[in-house]
């Protein structure tokens, strides 16, 4: 009962701040609203008893990536309240691409019966021990591949940073 209200509150916050990311004039406000969105989503994860996912979400997105965003916005001094006029064709392309994504999403979710947990607090899959078992046994190969991808990205970033010396 109580969690229902929390769910609605979090959803409202998430939707509102997601819309405000697009609508606010100052880039730095957008970044902050995005942080708020991530927080609301982390709250949803906790409601689903997926604590590990929630915390990692906060560490990676709200902690690291958002701080980098803030850095970039501050360094480039994007404080001017001007919206650069975009060409019409970009707007049309953006609308078409958005609609296509919508169609794909509808197509995905129509095919499946989405299982609704009666009481998400009773599911144990989100706890760190179970998650570790699944990741390192059932999905070992994709997990390792993703790690290699991250390593490649890291090496690439260092290479780009050292461009002059090579």
């Amino acid at each position: 009962m109580f969690t229902k209200y929390i769910f609605f509150f979090l959803s409202t916050v998430a939707l509102y701040s997601a819309i405000m990311v697009l609508l606010s004039r100052k880039p730095i406000h957008s970044v902050l609203y995005l942080t708020l969105t991530f927080f609301a989503i982390a709250g949803h994860y906790i409601l689903l008893n997926a604590q590990f996912l929630a915390v990692v979400h906060v560490i990676v997105y709200a902690g690291a990536i958002m701080v980098l965003f803030l850095f970039t916005v501050m360094l480039l001094n994007l404080n001017k309240e001007e919206v650069s006029p975009k060409p019409v064709w970009i707007k049309i392309v953006a609308i078409i691409a958005g609609c296509l994504l919508m169609i794909v999403l509808i197509g995905i979710f129509r095919g499946y019966d989405i299982a609704i947990e009666k009481d998400p607090a009773l599911t144990q899959i989100g706890l760190v021990k179970n998650l570790g078992q699944v990741l390192y046994k059932q999905y070992l190969l994709p997990f390792e591949l993703a790690s290699i991808l991250f390593l490649t990205a890291m090496v690439g970033a260092v290479l780009l940073g050292k461009k002059e010396q090579i």
């Binding site: 730095i28 902050l32 942080t35 604590q51 590990f52 915390v55 990692v56 906060v58 560490i59 709200a62 902690g63 690291a64 958002m66 701080v67 803030l70 850095f71 501050m74 706890l127 760190v128």
Partner: peptide, 25 residues
């Protein structure tokens, strides 16, 4: 008493920097 107590503390303690960056900016 979280299942992931240490990770939780690491996560929330890294948020203070957002406030510091905003204050400075």
């Amino acid at each position: 008493d979280f299942d992931i107590g240490i990770l939780y503390v690491i996560a929330v303690s890294s948020l203070g920097v957002v406030g510091i960056l905003l204050a400075g900016w």
